[in-house]
């Protein structure tokens, strides 16, 4: 499974990594976002020379600058910042930037650690840029520019992996199961350079103005009834592949909406 990536990967792969300012779940302090840092680690492994690292956000925030420096502590000389004012949607400036750069691969985290945290950004970008989107990858096995295909490894529950073949160019979000990011070294963090691009066209997010933001409440956990009687049963329950089967594919819009509504009612959400 593990191949030497340098042999199977074409030269001159253009890769962009999108990073964000994360938030520690306990202290709420800004930090390297865990998934984004993994995306960057993957990028540094695959294309250390041609890698472009993009951050879209306000540069006025000194805490954010500290976090960007921490990313640069992973051994990056330069990081491009799209100076997007606060309360402004970052999709449009990122879209324009990526249209200019035309990368073969764009890596992001699955979702941001604060703010909207909707996880929609990679999907919106892939739709607009007409690129494939592969969610929750752990590794890129090979990128072949001549045939225009790449093989990526996708994370599934219970440690399972799935090899996926995808057309170039593509966007992929990186799962927590990917290789842990390298340590951030203070020296290169301090000496790294932020290249700030002013943003011409922005979209003011009027919706956001209205929002009230409060800390997320932990979801109540479903009671887990242990049915297993023996250790062997428990082992099977912990490791066995989840078997599908009960699901069905619905193509009709109305029918699918009804199915969702029924599920929500069954679960007493509505």
């Amino acid at each position: 499974m593990l191949k030497d990536i340098s042999k199977t990967t074409s030269k001159n792969i253009k890769m962009s990594v999108l990073i964000s300012v994360g938030e520690h779940p306990l202290s709420a302090r800004p930090r390297r976002a865990e998934q984004d840092a993994r995306a960057l680690e993957l990028g540094l492994k695959l294309a250390p020379e041609s890698l472009k690292i993009l951050y879209a956000g306000s540069t006025g925030d000194s805490a954010a600058t500290e976090v960007l420096k921490e990313y640069m502590g992973m051994g990056i000389d330069q990081l491009e910042v799209l100076d997007v004012p606060p309360k402004t949607d970052v999709t449009l400036p990122l879209l324009e930037k990526l249209q200019q750069d035309c990368p073969d691969v764009v890596l992001t985290g699955i979702r941001a650690e604060n703010g909207e945290s909707s996880g929609m950004l990679p999907y919106l970008l892939s739709e607009q840029l007409n690129m494939a989107m592969v969610p929750a990858i752990t590794d890129i096995l090979c990128i072949d520019k001549t045939t225009g295909f790449a093989e990526v490894l996708q994370a599934l529950p219970r440690g399972q992996r799935r090899k996926v073949k995808v057309n170039l160019p593509f966007i992929a979000s990186v799962d927590m199961a990917a290789a842990a990011p390298r340590q951030s070294a203070y020296g290169s963090a301090m000496r790294g350079h932020l290249k700030i691009d002013p943003v011409t066209r922005t979209m003011h997010d009027a919706e956001q103005e209205q929002w009230q933001i409060s800390p997320a409440q932990a979801r109540p956990k479903r009671l887990k009834i242990v049915k297993a009687k023996t250790a062997a049963d428990r082992f099977k329950a912990a490791t066995a592949k989840v078997q599908g089967g009960s699901g069905k594919v619905i193509y009709d819009n109305k029918e699918s909406a009804e199915a969702i509504l029924k599920l929500l009612k069954d679960e007493k959400v509505l």
Partner: peptide, 8 residues
């Protein structure tokens, strides 16, 4: 090792 190489 720690501050320059990040290899603790």
């Amino acid at each position: 090792e720690t501050l320059e190489k990040g290899q603790t």
